[in-house]
Design a protein around this nucleic acid. Structure first.
Lengths: 160, 160
DNA sequence: AATTTGGTTCTTAAAATTATGAACCAACGA
DNA sequence: TCGTTGGTTCATAATTTTAAGAACCAAATT
């Protein structure tokens, strides 16, 4: 069977998809990739097929393929399959945000290490700067310790 | 007086500048702009002039001008002037990271609002998804409340 | 008044990113 | 075994980003 599936989007859905897309672009995702995230968040289906994504967003096969593989590799989406159906049904990976938070904190910690190195390299020529940079470093270290802890606490609270 | 100022960089400095530059690129800064941040962090001078920046990084006048203005507008650098000297001396703005943290939290809160809208738009077709997305939303809201509070607490502690 | 300094702005080029369309391919079904 | 489905990959095009270089300009200096 051929042709269009296109469960056409309402204007409201379309706009929300764009906004979610833009947010993802700001986080460094390519536009089409961000839009796919938007679509997956907005869609009420449990999973969207390759074809559905491509048709509702009007993007090419290759763009769809590349974007989906990128999102899979980043572990922000997943897919389900069904016996006797070759299609994959993609959806947002909703169990992964803990790890995302932890990763973000690690990146911040990484930057704090660079700043520490900068402080050492500069020596004590400008003590005021050293002190201010150190404050920043220590706050970053503090954050990257406290935020995961906060998250664990929050999760414990919540699962009760 | 003409010609090169170039307080040449050591290999170690050069490498650290690149690393700090790459970190900034990952945050969405253009390469040259990220490198300027690197240089300003690594330099032991209290401020670097337009000319010094351009010469030590080997970038063009226009690139330097645009990058500096971008960084000024983003409020991540500042400059000092001295009477009888037309030059501006640029340095990292070290008193602004509180605001940066707050801004980041606001952006997260903004995204949580989009997800809330998505949840509403989807209705109750997929309650498990709604619940998981809601968990994420609530954690984001929690974070964007707690992190600034944590920061305030930390600052109070520290200024004693 | 002419020149130098400390930039800014404009035009253009180079490079990188993003997406297209066509060709391709393996698995499955008829 | 032939066509269809569900993609992937490749070559290329379009767009965007980034930087260069030259022209420009106002303020200060000679």
């Amino acid at each position: 069977m051929k042709g269009t599936i296109v469960a056409q989007l309402t204007e409201e859905q379309r706009q929300l998809i764009e906004k979610i897309g833009i947010f993802h672009e700001q986080q460094g995702f390519p536009p089409a990739t961000g839009r796919i995230m938007g679509l997956l968040f907005v869609s009420d289906k449990p999973g969207l097929s390759f074809e559905e994504i491509l048709e509702t967003l009007n993007i090419s096969k290759s763009a769809t393929s590349n974007a989906l593989n990128m999102l899979l590799q980043m572990r922000v989406i997943e897919y389900t399959t069904f016996p006797g159906d070759r299609k994959r049904y993609f959806s947002v990976l909703l169990d992964n945000w803990h790890q995302e938070v932890i990763n973000k904190m690690e990146s911040i910690l990484g930057f704090s290490k660079l700043l520490r190195q900068a402080n050492e390299l500069r020596g004590n020529v400008n003590p005021e700067m050293n002190e201010k940079v150190l404050e920043r470093i220590e706050f970053m270290e503090f954050l990257s310790k406290e935020v995961p802890a906060l998250m664990q606490k929050w999760l414990k609270e919540r699962q009760k």
